[in-house]
């Protein structure tokens, strides 16, 4: 559905998107994960035809975004990061307007379906300006799917809304993924994990990791962390002691104590405490920290930096 080959965007000397290539299959929710300024929005803007790529090509449902721009645009529903609204229109009028512009002659049915889908049917005659932020987000979603596009592109749709609504939006996106190809960007890893079938982690315009969220997690999981504060030992002695414990891969000074990287998913707390006791020191604190996807994400991004 979406095919991207070597897509590049250069602003002067700065590379915003650097030879990006990926594909998204029908019925897939593909997450674009990356920090701010990673090139997510630029990529999406190129795919929707708002910005021209400097190099490379992309196609949507088989239509090249440059050669067959109109056909490609016809098959895309797009929700930019800041929901674009006409405050003086009614909810229904707004969705109808976009339906018409996307070539639907008699939009009544489509509009009804879209409003049902985002649960805005009971507010169809309200003015857009009187909607809450979460409702506006849902309205934005309604306009993106009203023409039943093959591809739906959502740019950080959960930003700035309250947690309850975040969950609603995530659910809607997941539901959309059953019928459409959804390209979904976020900078929150857990969100990508919840919503996406597949995640591309991008930084500085490049893909630095990709795969199913679970796979990505597994890749990182071996590295369990243990935090230990030892009393009565000099820094050198403590370090020596800790690194001598079997199963400890690395010791790093972290504030008052030390961070230990532990092999596999073994729980070493018992062994660490007995070693410290045996050496005649006191164990002031010990705590196990399982890495979250956030940490993986930060680590990967940090590495690529």
């Amino acid at each position: 559905m979406i095919e991207v080959k070597g897509l590049t965007k250069r602003y002067g000397d700065r590379l915003a998107v650097d030879h990006l290539s990926f594909t998204a299959k029908p019925g897939e929710v593909l997450g674009l994960l990356g920090p701010n300024g990673a090139g997510k929005t630029t990529t999406m803007r190129m795919l929707t035809g708002y910005l021209p790529p400097t190099e490379g090509s992309a196609s949507i449902a088989g239509y090249d975004i440059l050669e067959d721009s109109m056909e490609a645009r016809r098959r895309v529903g797009y929700l930019p990061e800041r929901v674009p609204l006409y405050p003086d229109m009614t909810v229904r009028g707004y969705v109808t307007f976009w339906a018409r512009l996307r070539g639907i002659r008699s939009p009544r049915k489509h509009v009804n379906a879209a409003l049902e889908r985002v649960h805005l049917m009971d507010r169809q005659n309200q003015l857009v300006r009187n909607l809450s932020k979460g409702l506006r987000q849902r309205l934005g979603l309604a306009q993106a799917l009203v023409h039943n596009p093959a591809v739906i592109i959502l740019d950080e749709p959960t930003i700035g809304i309250d947690p309850q609504q975040v969950i609603e939006v995530r659910e809607s996106v997941r539901a959309l993924g059953k019928e459409h190809t959804v390209l979904f960007s976020t900078h929150i890893l857990s969100e990508a994990e919840h919503v996406c079938d597949r995640v591309l982690i991008i930084n500085k315009g490049r893909v630095i990791a990709q795969g199913k969220p679970a796979d990505l997690r597994r890749q990182m999981e071996p590295k369990t962390q243990l935090y230990v504060v030892v009393g009565g030992a000099s820094g050198k002695a403590a370090r020596q002691l800790l690194s001598a414990i079997p199963g400890v891969l690395a010791v790093e000074r972290d504030g008052d104590g030390y961070s230990l990287t532990v092999e596999g998913d073994r729980d070493l707390r018992g062994e660490v405490s007995s070693h410290v006791m045996q050496a005649g020191y006191t164990l002031l604190e010990i705590r196990q920290a399982t890495t979250s996807l956030e940490d993986i994400f930060l680590e990967i991004v940090g590495k690529s930096r």
Binding site: R45, T48, G49, Y50, M70, E71, R73, R74, V76, Y78, P80, P84, W98, L101, R102, G103, Q143
Partner: peptide, 8 residues
């Protein structure tokens, strides 16, 4: 405008 320009 972004939405208009990305519509067909």
């Amino acid at each position: 405008m972004e939405l208009l320009l990305t519509s067909p």
